[in-house]
Amino acid sequence: MSNYILVEVNVVNRQKQQYVTIKGTKEGLTLHLDDTCSFKELLAEIETKLTSNSNPDDSPLLGVRLKVGNRYLTNKQQEKLRNVIRSKKNFIVEEIESNVMTKEQAIQWKEENEIVPVAKMIRSGQVLEVNGDLLLIGDVNPGGTVKAGGNIFILGALRGNAYAGLAGNNQSVIAASLLKPTLLSINETLNRSPDFSEQTEGSNEMECAYIDDQERIVIDRLQLLSQLRPMLTRLERRM
């Protein structure tokens, strides 16, 4: 009699890895894209998934946000993603969020977020401008101007002009030991001296200016700044 050996073969059905995860929100769709697969594989799966999720022709325009994780996308790759999504009915890319940036973008981010200390008096006709936050140790005389992409902090008297939030940030603030400006501007909101507080020259209370919920520049006590703009104390909370 022949001897037979029974060999058991285990067949494992491996489910194909998903490179694209779609989550719906009231603002639209969020696509979480795998950052380990090839870009070609990513495009193919987006094409397949959005085809199955496409809307009727008469549906309203639906915004799509892409979260690409630790994948760096060139401008050409970003445009390819936009084109694939735009080719589907009523889909449009509103934002591409990546954890990776170029060296040039990192330098720009640093310049826009760093605090630039300057010790001098800004006299009439002089203009001091920085990309990030300005920390001025000195006075700004009438006719003098200080400008910053972010916040302005003045350890001295502000009697001239101050422009904060030039990088487009409505959350920027202006603070000074003595706040008696000729003009204040935060982002694109302006306010002139007749609307400001009645702080006297002898007062020791520092004040700050910020934009409130009604899109107006408001002057208030500096002590309230940590409540109004909690992100200003983000470094302290991490310690």
Rank of each mutant, 00 (worst) to 15 (best):
T189Q: 11
V93L: 07
S185G: 03
D35N: 01
E94A: 06
T182C: 02
P142C: 06
E27H: 10
I137K: 15
R14S: 11
R238V: 02
V68K: 02
L42P: 01
E112Y: 03
T182Q: 14
L66I: 08
V127A: 02
K76A: 14
Q77E: 15
S177Q: 12
G69T: 00
V146I: 14
I115V: 14
L235M: 12
T36C: 07
L61P: 01
T21A: 08
I115G: 03
V7F: 06
Q17N: 14
A176S: 13
V7I: 07
G138I: 15
M121Y: 08
T51W: 02
L6E: 10
V173P: 02
E236Q: 05
A167Q: 07
N191V: 06
I152R: 02
E8W: 06
L155E: 15
N204Y: 06
K76S: 05
I22D: 09
V127L: 12
N161H: 10
R229L: 12
E236D: 04
F91V: 00
E198S: 06
F91R: 00
T102E: 05
K80Q: 15
I92E: 09
P142Y: 08
V68D: 05
S52L: 15
D35L: 00
I154N: 00
G202R: 04
L31E: 10
L179C: 03
G160D: 09
I154A: 04
T36K: 15
G168N: 15
M206L: 05
R238A: 08
V146E: 14
R238I: 09
G28E: 01
D212L: 04
Q78E: 15
E111Q: 13
N3S: 09
N99C: 00
T21Q: 12
L62T: 01
N75P: 01
V130E: 03
I122F: 05
N99L: 01
D212C: 09
S59T: 10
D34P: 02
I152M: 04
N187Y: 08
S193R: 10
N169Q: 10
K110F: 13
W109M: 08
S203L: 05
N75K: 12
T36Q: 09
P56C: 04
E198M: 06
S2D: 14
V100R: 05
N204D: 13
K120G: 06
G168P: 13
T74L: 03
N191M: 12
T25Q: 14
L134M: 13
A164N: 01
R82G: 03
T102N: 07
L61A: 10
I219T: 15
D35I: 00
K180V: 01
A162C: 12
E94Y: 11
V11M: 08
E47V: 10
Q18S: 13
G165A: 11
S177H: 03
V127H: 11
